[in-house]
């Protein structure tokens, strides 16, 4: 039985103390949709789980002039029902909506998706695109890490034992800015992304793209921010040639593997297609503002 202890802190400080003081391996439990499967093999090491869902701030989200503050353990089902957040960051909500089935969304959280650090996580490119930052609490106080730096490898994040992802913060978007997330899967639902693309686009009143952030997923060990793809768009009116250049830059930046979900060549190709399509969606949303 790998899980040998279960703890329920009610505050961030208490959670940090529990995490630090644990004498077995320890994992933070939010929705559990990855953790419970990963802890099933009989031979794995004893594990303590710290369930953070009784910490109120972990389970709420607020949006105002300061931007979005997101409780990392809030379920995707609750998040995707928030029209106030969706109207500002539609791409983030799209990504959250794509994680697993309705049942999985009832449990899975953005903080979990981020911390689990799968290369194919849907919300990570979406968060990178909108410039989200992780607020990490630990025994020595808090620190702030950009999402693109939070994930450091396959299944690895930058937190040390005793640290806890306390909240996710997103700055308010500039005027005429919007985001989009697209992923490619073989079926219509239930699959893990073969490739994903999160984009944020700012347009001016002349229809010129003035700023862009392009992030791609499932095509490298971590999600990648691709400045070259953004550079191909900025200053253009997003003509086909600009879109093609952004797609080519995304394909060039990707370092995919071949596996049961797709070949490296296929992923490299499809991620470009997704970037192109996601940019068009985000740009249209931005212009409609």
């Amino acid at each position: 039985m790998p899980i040998v202890d279960y703890k329920v802190p009610v505050s961030v400080d208490e959670a940090v103390i529990m995490l630090k003081g644990c004498n077995t391996a320890v994992k933070i439990l939010a929705g559990g949709t990855d953790l419970i499967i990963q802890s099933k093999p009989a031979g794995s090491d004893p594990l303590t789980v710290v369930d953070i869902k009784s910490i109120d701030s972990m389970m709420t989200a607020s949006i105002d002039d300061e931007g979005l503050t997101l409780g990392p353990a809030m379920s995707c089902a609750e998040l995707t029902a928030r029209d106030d957040i969706k109207s500002v960051y539609p791409g983030l909500i799209e990504a959250a909506y794509l994680i697993g089935s309705t049942q999985v969304q009832g449990r899975a959280s953005i903080g979990g998706n981020l911390s689990n650090a799968s290369p194919a996580a849907d919300t990570i490119p979406a968060l990178i695109a909108i410039g989200a930052r992780c607020i990490i609490a630990g025994p020595d106080g808090e620190r702030v890490v950009a999402v693109e730096d939070f994930v450091v490898g396959v299944g690895k994040n930058c937190m040390a034992q005793g640290e806890l992802l306390k909240s996710i913060q997103v700055p308010p978007p500039e005027a005429k800015t919007s985001d989009a997330y697209l992923r490619f899967i073989p079926r219509t639902e239930m699959d893990i992304a073969v490739a994903g693309a999160g984009v944020s686009i700012t347009m001016d009143s002349e229809g010129v793209c003035t700023a862009a952030r392009i992030a791609i997923g499932a095509v490298a060990v971590t999600a990648l921010l691709v400045p070259a793809a953004a550079a191909a768009l900025v200053g253009s009116k997003l003509e086909e040639s600009a879109l093609q250049a952004a797609a080519a830059a995304a394909s060039a930046a990707s370092k995919p593997i071949s596996d049961r979900r797709g070949t490296a060549d296929y992923r490299r190709h499809v991620v470009g297609v997704l970037v192109k399509r996601a940019v068009s969606i985000a740009a249209q949303r931005a212009q409609e503002q």
Binding site: Y6, G31, S101, Q103, R107
Partner: peptide, 9 residues
């Protein structure tokens, strides 16, 4: 809230 009971402790 609808969930899979195999993914709940």
């Amino acid at each position: 809230r609808l969930v899979c009971s195999c993914l709940v402790l």
